[in-house]
Design a protein around this nucleic acid. Structure first.
Lengths: 227, 227, 227, 227
DNA sequence: CATGAATGAGTCTTCATTCAT
DNA sequence: GATGAATGAAGACTCATTCAT
C-alpha cells in the first residue's frame, strides 16, 4: 500500500506511454501488412513506418511473430466486440430477427479492416503464438452457443454443439467470402445477402416441416462390394 | 522409314522423363510445404528434397511462384476430379440424395491431402499466377450451377447465381473447417456431418413451408437510411 | 543549453562514421576491382575485403551498381581536380605552355590510380547510373572550351566546339594509351611524351602557315555520289 | 599420300561444315552481345540463338572466353582488312591525301559493326586470351609505320616509332569517340571530321614552321621549393 | 559428333535480431 | 529506455560446363 502512492501514478504514466507505443507499432504493422503483404513486412520497415527505431520495436515485442500475433489479437478483439454488442442487443429478439442481426454484425466485423483481415486469412502462417489466438474464435463459439441455448425451444436440432459449430462456420465463411472476395455483390445490396444467410441458418435450426433428410449410406466406392 | 521408329519413342521418352521430373519436383514441394510451411520452403530445400539440383528445378519452373502455382493447380485438379465424378453419378438422384453425395465428395476432396490443403489456404499468398488459379474454383461454381439448373423445379430460390455461390461457399467452408480444423469431429461419424450439412443446404434450396424469413430493415446504426 | 553541445558533435560523429564507412567500402571496391576485375568483384567479396558485413554495404549503397558508380565518381572527381588546378594555374600562360601544362595534368590524372582507371575503361559496363557519370567528362569539355575561348585570338580553328572535342579526345586517348598500355614508354621520359602531344595539339589549334589540307572527296566507293 | 585420297576431301567437307558452325556461333555471339551486353551473354543463350545445342558450342570452343576471343579476332580482322586495303591504295599518294584516306578507312572500320565494337571496348574484360588479341592492333602499328617510313622525306618528326604510336592512337581514339559516342556529329558531315583529323595528323608529322614547342620543365608542384 | 538435361558453385540482396552508444 | 548501425545466415536465381544418350 505504501508503495502504491509513488509507484502507481508513475507507473501508469509509463504504462500509458508504453501503451501508446504499442498502439503506434500495431498501427504501423497493419499499414505495412496491408500495403506490402506479409512477406515484405520487415520489422525494419514497420519500425520506420511507425517513426520508431527497430530497437524500440524489440523493446515491446520479443520478435516479429509476437508483433503480428498482437495485431491479430487486437483485430480479433475489435471484431468480437461487434458480435458481443449484437448478442446483447439481440437477447430478447425472436430467432429469425436475432440471427439476422448477428449476420449483420458479422458483416460489420469483416468490414472493420477487410484488407488486413484478408492478409491474416491468406498469408499469415498459423504457427506458434498464432495458434493460441484462434482461442478468440473459440469465444465466438461459446457466446453463440449460449445464445442458442437460451432459444433452445425454437431450435429443433438435437446436438447444440455441432449446430453451433455449423452455424458459426457457415456464417463466418459466407461473410468472409462475400466481404473479402465478392465485395461488389454486397454494394447497395447488403440486406439481400444478410437475408439469404439468415434464411440458410434459420431454416437449418428450425426446420418447419418434418422431413429431415437423412443421409443414405454412401453409394459410391461400392467397389469392394461392401454396403 | 526404319529410323522413324526410334525417333518417336525417344521423344516421348524425353517427355516422360520431363514429366517425371515435374512430378518429382511437385511431390517434393508438397512435402516441404507440409513439413516446413511456406516461409521455410526455399527452392534449394525443395530441390534437395527432390534429390535434384536447384538448376534442374529452374529448368522446369521459371520461379518459385510458378512451382507453387503448379502444385496448387495439381491439387485443385485432383479435388475437382472427385467433385466432377460425383456430379456425374448424381445426375439422376433426387435433390437431397444428390446434395448428400456432393457433400461427401467435398469431404473426400479435402481428404486428398488435407495438410497441404491447409498450407494453401492459410499461408500461400494469393498473388500473381496464383490469382488465376482461383479460376479452378470458378469451375466448381459452374458445375454446381449447371446441376442446380437441371433441378430447378425442386428449388425455390429465385436467384440461382447467388444460391450457387452460397451453397458452394458454405459447403466448402464447412468441409474445410471440419476436415482441417476439427478432424476429430468426423472420426467414425462422417455421415452425421454430411447429413447436417446436407440438411442445411437442402433446407435452404427447398424451404417446404411458406415462411421465408425476410430480414428486417437494420435496427442498429441507421446510417444513411439506404436499404 | 548545456545539452546542445553534445548533440551536434554526436551527429557529426555519426556522419563522420558514415563517411568513413563509405570510404572504406569504396577503397575495398577499388582494391577488389583492381585485383580481380569487374566480373569477380562480388559484393560479398568487397564487403569482406572492407572488413565489413554485406549488410553494412547495402546500408550505404542500394546495389552493386551504385557502389561502383560512387567509386567511378570519386575517381573522376580526383582526376578532374588535377585538371581544374592546372587550368587555374595556366590561365595567363601562352597557348603552347598552357597546353603543355594541361597535358601534364592529364598524365598526372591518369596516374592517380591507373590500374583502377583501366578497369573502368575496359570492363565496367556503361549502363544505368554509370551513364550519368559521363557527365563529369562533360565538365572537362566545358572547362577546356572556356579556356580556349579566352585564348581565341591565338587559335585559327573556326569551330571551337569541335576543336575542343578533338583536342580533349586526343589528349585523353593518348594519355590513356601511354599511361595505361605503354607505361614503359613514359618512364623517365614523360616530358618527351608531353612535348609531342603538345606539339600535336598546338599545331592543330594554331597552324602557322596557310596550307590547311582539305580532304578531297572520297576516292573509294563513290557510293551514292554524295559529298 | 595414299591416305590423301579419301581423307582430304572428306576432311575438307567436314572442315567446311565446321567452319560454317563456327561462323554461325560467332554470328550468334555478336547478336547476343549486342542485344544483351557482355554480362547477360550466356553460352546457353548464344547456343540457342545460333539454333545449336550448348554441347555443340563446346565442341568448337573450349570455353566462353575463347568464343568471345574468336569473335573479337574476327571483328578485328575485318577492321584491319579495310585499313590494309586503304594502305595499298594510298601507297603513291602524297602524305596529306594519304592520311585523309587512312582516316576515312578508320571511320569505315569502326562502322563495320559499331555496336559490337562498343561492347568490346567497354565491357569485355581484357584477360587471358583476349590479351594476345591486342597483337592484331600491333599489326596496325607496323603497317602504318611501314607507310610512314616510305614517306620519311615528308615527315619532320625524328622518332618514327613514337610518331606512329601517337598518330595511330590519336586517329583510333578520335574515330572511336565520334563513331561510337557522337555519331550525330558525323551524320552527313563525315568529311569535315575526316578533314579535321587529317589536319591534326599532318600538322603533327610535317610542321611547316620551325617553332616546335619544347615542353618547359614542369612548373607545377614547385611546392617543395624545387625548380 | 550432336544434344540438352543436369549440375552446383556463386551472385545479389533481404531481414530478423543484437548491442554499443 | 531509445537509437540505428552492424551483422551474417539464408533466399531466389543464373550460368559455365559436363556427360549420358
Amino acid at each position: 500500500m505504501a508503495r502504491a502512492i509513488p509507484t502507481t501514478p508513475r507507473k501508469s504514466a509509463t504504462q500509458k506511454r508504453s501503451q501508446a507505443m504499442v498502439e503506434t507499432l500495431l498501427d504501423a504493422t497493419a499499414r505495412v501488412l496491408t500495403r506490402e503483404g506479409y512477406d515484405r513486412a520487415s520489422t525494419n520497415r514497420i519500425a520506420a513506418t511507425a517513426g520508431v527505431s527497430v530497437g524500440s520495436l524489440y523493446q515491446y515485442f520479443p520478435n516479429k511473430e509476437a508483433l503480428v500475433a498482437a495485431l491479430v489479437a487486437r483485430h480479433n478483439r475489435q471484431m468480437l466486440e461487434l458480435l458481443r454488442d449484437a448478442l446483447k442487443e439481440v437477447a430478447s429478439f425472436d430467432l429469425a430477427t436475432a440471427i439476422g442481426e448477428l449476420v449483420r454484425a458479422a458483416v460489420d466485423a469483416h468490414l472493420v479492416d477487410s484488407a488486413l483481415h484478408r492478409i491474416f486469412a491468406e498469408q499469415v502462417p498459423r504457427l506458434g503464438q498464432l495458434a493460441k489466438i484462434d482461442a478468440l474464435q473459440q469465444e465466438t463459439f461459446l457466446m453463440v452457443r449460449a445464445y442458442l441455448e437460451e432459444r433452445r425451444a425454437e431450435i429443433s436440432v438435437p446436438d447444440l454443439d455441432s449446430a453451433t459449430a455449423i452455424c458459426v462456420t457457415a456464417v463466418e465463411a459466407l461473410t468472409h467470402e462475400f466481404v473479402i472476395n465478392r465485395p461488389e455483390a454486397l454494394d447497395g445490396d447488403r440486406d439481400r445477402f444478410i437475408g439469404e444467410v439468415t434464411r440458410l441458418i434459420v431454416g437449418y435450426l428450425r426446420p418447419a416441416d418434418g422431413a429431415t433428410p437423412r443421409v443414405a449410406a454412401p453409394r459410391r466406392r461400392a467397389r469392394t462390394g461392401g454396403l
